[in-house]
């Protein structure tokens, strides 16, 4: 899923400073799962904006903001969008882009889009994949160094890890530590010994 987080409300208010007649578009896919664009968050946003004196003309939660087919398909869900002078999208950047492409009024984002990640056992896991267009994750035991190592190192670790934690973020495990341990357990260290030259990567 696309990992996004809510902008601070003050920033949203600042974006909408001179704007009114706001229609809020949520997203029932990633943003809803991450609690930054589902129904409870959309309703909460509408209320807070109203408390700030804004007129909310309506809201809608498409199944996925990034795949809304047309303006009419939004009208079908809530005709109030016809009265909107401003649209606030509570979804990732793709969602905001698609909505911006099908409406004529200014569109604002309420979220910051961060990475392609996931959620497992109740925990949000960011940066699982860097969308490189040339998937090699198998060679690394399902832990992608392009996504999870801040230096995107394919040939081995950087030497900057301290006690297994990443040089860049001491809260995070070094991706290479995880990769190596996993492949060692699997008895597949041979896969890691491969030298990845630039020539054979299509990046």
């Amino acid at each position: 899923m696309i990992i996004s987080s809510a902008k601070p409300f003050e920033e949203v208010i600042e974006l909408l400073k001179d704007k009114d007649d706001i229609f809020v578009v949520g997203c029932n896919a990633c943003a809803a799962k991450l609690h930054v664009g589902g129904e409870p968050e959309v309703l909460e946003m509408c209320k807070r904006l109203e408390d700030e004196g804004k007129n909310i003309v309506g809201w809608v939660i498409p199944s996925a903001a990034c795949s809304v087919a047309s303006f009419d398909s939004l009208v079908e869900k809530n005709t109030a969008i016809n009265d909107a002078k401003t649209i606030l999208v509570m979804a990732c950047g793709s969602g905001v882009s698609i909505i911006s492409g099908i409406v004529d009024v200014p569109v604002y984002p309420s979220n910051n889009t961060e990475s392609l990640g996931g959620r497992s056992q109740g925990e949000v896991i960011p940066e699982l994949c860097a969308m490189c267009g040339d998937c090699k994750i198998y060679y690394f035991g399902g832990i992608c160094p392009k996504g999870q190592c801040p230096k995107r190192l394919l040939n081995g670790p950087c030497g900057g890890a301290v006690e297994g934690k990443c040089e860049v973020d001491p809260e995070k495990d070094c991706a290479w530590e995880l990769i190596f341990n996993k492949m060692e357990k699997k008895g597949r260290l041979d896969l890691l010994e491969k030298v990845w030259t630039v020539e054979e990567l299509s990046e």
């Binding site: 040939n155 081995g156 860049v168 990845w196």
Partner: peptide
């Protein structure tokens, strides 16, 4: 490879790492 930009005096610098040290050596 080089220490990450977040460790330095311009921590918001976009790090490049287009190549790693092994690739650069080859």
């Amino acid at each position: 490879t080089g220490d990450h930009t977040t460790k330095g005096d311009h921590p918001k610098t976009k790090p490049v790492y287009d190549l790693d040290s092994v690739q650069l050596l080859s």
